[in-house]
Design a protein around this nucleic acid. Structure first.
Length: 425
RNA sequence: GGAGAGGUGGGUGAGUGGCUGAAACCAACGGUUUGCUAAACCGUCGUACUCUGUAAAGGGGUACCGAGGGUUCGAAUCCCUCCCUCUCCGCCA
């Protein structure tokens, strides 16, 4: 959520930001409603001031045993008028809020302007030693490998749940579990994050807090009976840990890392990247979430990115990092880096992580503040989060990059103590 | 699922129709005292919106005691609906 006062004072900047994000511009309507609201507010508040004053007078008169019928009758009229104006203001406010909820966060000044993913800018790239994009044999893709080695079962997943619900079997299941544990341990032991194991179902307010609602509501699984949603990412429960809280400044930054299953309906994206793990309805992810002081959020974004990259370096998976252009930024993000890992069989890069700075956009929605010791004022924190990492796309890269000419999989060295075996097949 | 208790400021907690934006205590902040720390003492200490306005400040108003309605000239206080937490019982992992 943007600050209404900021919108009022910087309408042109906001409009430009929305345009750069390819989003719908409702600012003129917002300003009009804001104007209406404030003028009505002035009138009704004057009436309320009058009512408060006279009501006290009534109390005094009654105590003195005097008759107050005349002014009571008059105040009744005032009260009715107030009620009418209040209703009117509430109506305006509802309209205003429903518009505000849909206004995206503005891109940071360092974000390249662009229309689509094609305009994203490469930030840097990392390749393992002796790596080559050229391969002599045609590598098997992860679906073929999974089937051949009997470690992934997409067909049975479709039978028991539907397409996009993969089943990990045998050493595949162990490898998945090892990967999750390895990533969590690294973040907790080496990067200073506190481990969180969050709920996978959250209420509507939480979804609103991080910005999934209203814009992405259709993309989430919803349990109507209890009005709860399956989380699309652990970002939601973990960021909402501090919803409606005032965080002690000396506890900042707060850094959490947590595993969750992630559920996405992927409505409207059928047929695109549908193979195997490339687009699934349920996947596993370790997520990092930070609550930081505003002045530090961009340096925290860099370190968040580097924390995610450390996983890939340790696993020796080739990756590159993109700075998303304004048009490709998600609704709530001010800046975002995507990490893409190399898939030799697909012969392309696959998105495995997003690391974003939301500035105070989520904090304002979720009302997460701290008291600034210098100004003594309450301020919104900045929130950030990044996948560290999603296992599905990562698993594609691991299986394909670590396959031997015989079609076996060598377990990456850092995972071997977690799996207890060093080869699959 | 059944029965009961309760949700008040950063925290504990008082407050059953007007003098309560809210006692008291704790925490926090500023100061005095002290060789340093501690203790003691004094003082300050809600948020949001809005109007006015200053170099910075400040001042006025409104709202807010879980949420939303209602009664009333006037509601933290009375009524209704909903949400949440806790305790006990039942069922179950």
């Amino acid at each position: 959520m943007l600050d209404l006062k900021f919108i009022r004072d910087n309408a042109e900047i906001v409009k430009q930001g929305i345009a750069n994000k390819n989003d719908k511009d409702t600012i003129d309507e917002v300003l009009k409603l804001d104007e209406q609201k404030r003028s009505s507010l002035q009138i009704v508040e004057d009436l309320k001031a009058q009512r408060n004053k006279v009501s006290q007078e009534v109390g005094r008169l009654k105590k003195a045993g005097k008759n107050a019928d005349a002014i009571i009758a008059k105040m009744k009229e005032v009260s009715d008028k107030i009620k009418e104006l209040d209703d009117n203001i509430r109506e305006i406010e509802d309209k205003l809020n429903s518009l505000l909820e849909w206004i995206p966060n503005l891109p940071h000044a360092s974000v390249p302007i662009g229309k689509s993913a094609l305009d994203n800018v490469e930030y840097h790239q990392w390749l393992p030693e002796a790596f080559s994009f050229e391969t002599n044999d045609k590598p098997l893709d992860h679906v073929e490998l999974g089937k051949k080695l009997n470690i992934l079962d997409f067909e049975r997943g479709a039978k028991i749940s539907g397409s996009g619900f993969p089943v990990y079997v045998g050493k595949g299941a162990t490898l998945e579990r090892a990967l999750i544990n390895y990533m969590l341990d690294l973040h907790i032991n080496s990067h200073g994050y506190t481990e969180v194991f969050p709920p996978f179902l959250v209420n509507r307010e939480s979804m609103r807090g991080t910005g999934q609602i209203p814009k992405l509501e259709e993309d989430m699984y919803f349990c109507e009976k209890d009005d709860v949603f399956l989380i699309p990412t652990a970002e939601v429960p973990i960021t909402n840990l501090h919803r409606n809280e005032i965080i002690d400044e000396k506890n900042l930054p707060i850094k959490y890392a947590g595993y969750s299953a992630c559920f996405r309906r992927e409505a409207g994206s059928y047929g695109k990247d549908s193979k195997g793990f490339l687009r699934v309805h349920q996947f596993n992810k370790v997520e990092m979430v930070k609550f930081v002081k505003p002045e530090n959020s961009y340096s925290e974004l860099e370190s968040l990115l580097s924390d995610a990259e450390d996983i890939l370096k340790a696993l020796k998976i080739p990756f590159k990092v993109l700075t998303l252009c304004s048009g490709d930024l998600s609704f709530a993000a001010a800046k975002c880096y995507d990490i893409e890992t190399w898939s030799p069989a697909e012969n392309r890069w696959l998105e495995a992580s997003s690391c974003s700075n939301f500035e105070n956009f989520q904090a304002r929605r979720a009302n997460i503040r701290f008291r600034n010791k210098e100004t003594k004022k309450l301020e919104f924190v900045h929130t950030l989060n990044g996948s560290g990492l999603a296992t599905s796309r990562l698993m594609v890269s691991i299986l394909e990059n670590y396959q031997t000419p015989e079609g076996k999989i060598i377990v990456p060295a850092v995972l071997q103590k977690y799996t207890g075996f060093n080869i699959i097949g």
